[in-house]
Design a protein around this nucleic acid. Structure first.
Length: 502
RNA sequence: GGUCCGUUCGUCUAGGGGUUAGGACACGUCCCUUUCACGGAUGAAACACGGGUUCGAUUCCCGUACGGACUACCA
């Protein structure tokens, strides 16, 4: 069969917007699959009905598709292991749990959440932690302490129960993580984790292992937050007798706050004024979150930026297209340490990719209201000066809005008799410029200055202020060409009227 | 608290027993530009600490410190 085929999966929970760290996880999975000619699956882990959020699944699909991660199998596309939504696979999990019960690897437990919480609190006040494990389970309310008949009676009476894994008391568990090498954990530190909840749904641990096995997943690539439960998963593979086909693990370093300590959160994004979600998102309570896409980040830039947060090719190349990433990527070159999220780098990437876009394309999408030739000129004028494409639209609008005020500090230092006479002369010469293009405007300007014997350099900035109001900006000749003769004339007249007569 | 994972410039990172410890972002300076930006050049800037091992450790080992994750009938 497909024993050697690479099959990876991205398995988010539909609890809200997909965090940017999740996008990176999906990206790394995708890169590996593509590189090795494998399959990328999308599975939805919705076993917690209480945290289910309407629209989250759709968001996940849209976000992945936007950044260019295509799904080969799973949600949205189907496949041989359907369904790919865990809630729809619910009946299967009980069968597998029963398999463990019957082989003595798992047991029923009747302790209520309240009872367990009470024990936790009691022990915590003494400075120790409660564990449901080999030493405590013999004193608790479960099928190990109850007789077979008692257990049966409780279940038949409809008493709520969970199914717990019977974790061996003393066993060294070790597994090889592609990124972290061998990880050792002693079974005594692992709880008898709940496998089936009292609502009949599996927990993450059970569902995840069962599905990864059934879906023939070859590599589990997920965030580092799963590292502590990986030994438990290994135990589960063993309990089911699936150890020989167990997937390889790769636990990714976390994305950290830009400043201070801890992992990147939405709060950091709000504080820093940048997004942590690929797409804008509105919570059920109406609160909104920014999205990279809506903020003007190009998907190429986001992908490149994300790929480099925790991975690098080992060369000095910084710019990578998705295709280049596919060939250059390797799990072995992923870092172990968490990476602080620096939005400046993302902005830099955005600028780089923006410059790579053609003037024509940008003109079409960002300046649709302008006549094509003019729009292209405007794009050319601003493309290398902005970080986000929508700034081109803003700049274009500014360009056609006559200044209300004139930069005061420049007026104070540069508005003098020479400036006034030369700008007045230039204003008079403008109407006679036949072909109102940058070169011609420049010639006229040169002539004016030459006749007056005034140094151009002394007045140029003041001329800019007269025309645009600001002391700095894009090429002034080109700007005037785009504004047109009438507009320039009007602005010069206005400036000459409003600036003090010297 | 316990378990696990980690630690190279401010940030992302390369490197790996003998290097002027390399690149990128950000920052400074200069050049280009009659402005600004882009671009180019250049500068400042790092191996957490303490013990080993070794002729030699930033690199290997052990501790310590610090950071992180996990510690739910959440994923």
């Amino acid at each position: 069969m497909s024993n050697n085929q690479v099959r990876v999966r991205f398995a988010p929970s539909p609890t809200g917007a997909l965090h940017i760290g999740g996008v990176r996880t999906a990206l790394y999975n995708y890169l590996l699959a593509k590189q090795l000619g494998g399959k990328m699956l999308l599975r939805i882990e919705d076993t917690d009905q209480t945290r289910y959020v309407e629209g989250a699944e759709k968001y996940i699909i849209e976000a992945l598709s936007w950044v260019g991660i295509t799904i080969d199998e799973g949600i949205g596309v189907g496949g041989p292991h359907a369904p790919y939504r865990q809630s729809e696979r619910k009946p299967m999990y009980m069968d597998y749990a029963m398999q463990l019960i019957n082989s003595g690897k798992a047991y029923y437990a009747f302790d209520t959440s309240e009872e367990l919480d009470a024990m936790r609190q009691a022990l915590e006040s003494q400075g120790s932690a409660f564990q449901y494990n080999a030493v405590t389970r013999v004193k608790l309310n479960n099928s190990l302490t109850l007789s077979e008949d008692e257990t049966k009676a409780k279940i038949e009476a409809g008493e709520p129960y969970v199914i717990r894994l019977k974790v061996p008391a003393k066993e060294e568990i070790r597994f090889k993580d592609i990124i972290r090498d061998w990880v050792h954990v002693h079974s005594s530190t692992i709880d008898d984790k709940v496998l089936m909840k009292s609502d009949g749904m599996p927990t993450y641990h059970l569902a995840n292992v069962v599905d990864d096995h059934l879906m023939e997943i070859s590599h589990v690539i997920r965030g580092e937050e799963w590292l502590p439960s990986a030994p438990l998963h290994v135990l589960l593979y063993r309990a089911f007798g699936w150890e020989s086909t167990m997937p390889q693990f790769a636990h990714l370093p976390l994305l950290l706050k830009p400043e201070g300590n801890g992992k990147l959160s939405k709060r950091d994004a709000d504080l820093g004024g940048f997004p942590v979600f690929p797409l804008a998102w509105t919570n059920p309570d109406g609160s909104k979150a920014l999205g990279f896409r809506e903020e003007g980040y190009l998907k190429e830039a986001l992908v490149n930026f994300l790929a480099f947060l925790g991975w690098n090719p080992g060369t000095e190349q910084e710019m990578f297209s998705m295709d280049e990433l596919v060939t250059a990527f390797s799990l072995e070159r992923i870092n172990k340490a968490g990476a602080k999220f620096d939005i400046n780098k993302a902005k830099w990437y955005n600028q780089q990719y923006l410059k790579l876009q053609s003037d024509e394309e940008l003109a079409k999408t960002y300046l649709p209201d302008f006549e094509s030739d003019k729009a292209i000129k405007i794009v050319h004028l601003f493309k290398e000066r902005v970080t986000f494409p929508q700034e081109i639209t803003q700049e274009a609008n500014n360009l056609f809005t006559a200044p209300e005020t004139f930069d005061a500090t420049i007026v104070a230092s540069k508005w003098n008799v020479d400036a006034q006479t030369s700008i007045t002369a230039f204003a008079e010469a403008v109407p006679s410029i036949e072909n109102f293009v940058a070169d011609e405007i420049k010639h006229t300007l040169h002539d004016v200055f030459e006749k007056l014997g005034i140094k151009m350099g002394k007045v140029m900035q003041m001329l800019r202020v007269a025309v645009t109001g600001a002391g700095a900006g894009p090429d002034l000749m080109l700007s005037m060409e785009i504004m047109g003769k009438d507009e320039v004339t009007a602005r010069l007249t206005k400036a000459l009227n409003e600036l003090p007569n010297l």
